[in-house]
Simulated assay, not measured.
Amino acid sequence: MVILVQIQINIVLSILLIVLLVHAYFNMNRKRITNRLFMWIMGLTLLTLILEIFSVILNNSVFNEFMVLHKLVNIIGFIVAPCILFLGYIFTKEWVNRYQQEKIKVNKLLLLPLVINGIVTLMSYNGNGVFRITSENIYERGPLFFISPCASYIYFAYNLYFIYKYRKKFTYSELSMFSLFYIAPAILTSIQLKYSIYLTIWSSTAIIVVLTYIFILNDQAYRDTLSGLQNRLAYEHYAQNINYKKVNKLFMIYIDIDDFKKINDQYGHYEGDEAIKAFATLLVESFPLRQKKLIRLGGDEFLILLEEEQLEKVVDYMDNLTQNVEIYNNSEKKAYGLRFSYGMACYTEAYESLYQLLEYVDQLMYDQKESKKSKL
């Protein structure tokens, strides 16, 4: 009965992770590396929960005949534990890179803690590593036990350092979610290290994995798969829930790529998609402000929402975009150049809704496009 109370949370979370893992397998795009990595993290977390359940059950002299199994269960658990955190680092890196042209390289030195932890864990079979199983089939911490938590805390620390280093590439919600992914388990790991009776490490990790999965599904629902920008659904959600009184000043910029149809007709739809992705990257580089929404409404139409009080700064951002587009065109990466037209206005009480403002900036963009044609 005491054992059941000790592992009941693990059992419940294991069932939940099984359900979510099946859901993820059939509903997530498995061609995307971030999705595959997260499913691996989810699967390995499930494995550690199950291993911990067996470890608690087998930790009894009644099961002395299963001593070898008891050792193997703990060996696999100790080897897998830091692997999850290492995969977490790869997942975070790929998340930041998923729509960027310049990739962040993997720090190969981070493989060293995995190797050291694996070696001392295998030594545990004879009782000389991170744990030992007594003749009564009871688990005890071994002489090298400190190596396993040290490996985990190296990954906790490095992951948080990585997130801080590339914090400008994360939204506020991403920054909070990914930081929580490592901070909460790090704190609860220290509790289990001090009070081994409390199984807090993998139960907390499982809960964070569940929350992260919900976060990923939500992000994908509001994300344009081609450009990596937010989609029309994100705009609709923002427009329906915006409280004008709580927004100090909001600028809307409507952008349309000039002669995009010619790119599709002359170079093919693949190059059309490449042009969309390139222009989206230029938008991300040109608008570093956090209080922004970069949205692809569809086709070659983009919408930018900036919570900025000064018009001068908004103009500076547009100048950045113009300069970055010119630099891209002069790089001669493509046989065609990118050009765009836009309309811009500030959201005031004169507009009944954000939809009305969108109609206005759309007209401004169209007027600018027609003006360019008349000049030609």
Rank of each mutant, 00 (worst) to 15 (best):
Y213G: 01
D224T: 03
N243M: 08
I214M: 12
K245N: 15
Q240R: 06
I208F: 02
N243E: 12
Y198R: 01
L226T: 11
E236R: 00
I207A: 13
A239M: 03
A184V: 15
R223E: 12
K249S: 15
Y195T: 11
R232G: 10
Q192I: 13
Y182Q: 08
I242D: 02
I191F: 10
I187R: 05
S227V: 06
A206L: 08
S227G: 11
Y238S: 08
N218I: 03
V247N: 09
S227W: 02
V247Y: 01
Q230V: 04
N241P: 04
I201P: 00
Q220L: 10
I197V: 15
E236F: 04
L199K: 10
Y213S: 02
M252H: 03
Y238D: 08
N248V: 09
S196T: 13
I183E: 02
K245M: 09
F251Y: 15
Y244P: 07
I183H: 01
L188K: 04
N218H: 14
L229F: 03
L233H: 11
S196H: 14
R232Q: 07
V210Q: 06
S190I: 14
K249H: 14
K249W: 03
H237R: 02
Y244K: 15
I242M: 10
T200G: 05
T205G: 04
L193P: 04
A184C: 13
P185D: 04
T225L: 15
L229G: 03
Y213I: 00
N218A: 11
I183S: 00
L193A: 12
Q220K: 08
L217S: 10
T200C: 05
K245V: 14
A186Y: 04
Q240N: 15
I253G: 01
Y235N: 00
I208V: 14
T200E: 05
S196V: 07
A186H: 13
I242A: 09
A239I: 02
R232L: 15
T225I: 15
L217K: 12
A184P: 11
G228E: 12
L211R: 01
S204T: 14
G228S: 09
I187P: 07
Y213T: 05
N231R: 06
Y198M: 10
A234H: 07
A206I: 08
Y182H: 10
N243H: 04
T200D: 06
K246Q: 14
L188N: 09
K194D: 10
L211K: 01
N231A: 06
T212W: 00
Q240S: 13
V209T: 14
V210D: 04
N218E: 12
T200A: 06
I207V: 14
L250F: 02
Q230D: 09
Q230F: 10
Q230K: 12
I207H: 09
Y238W: 15
T200H: 02
L193M: 10
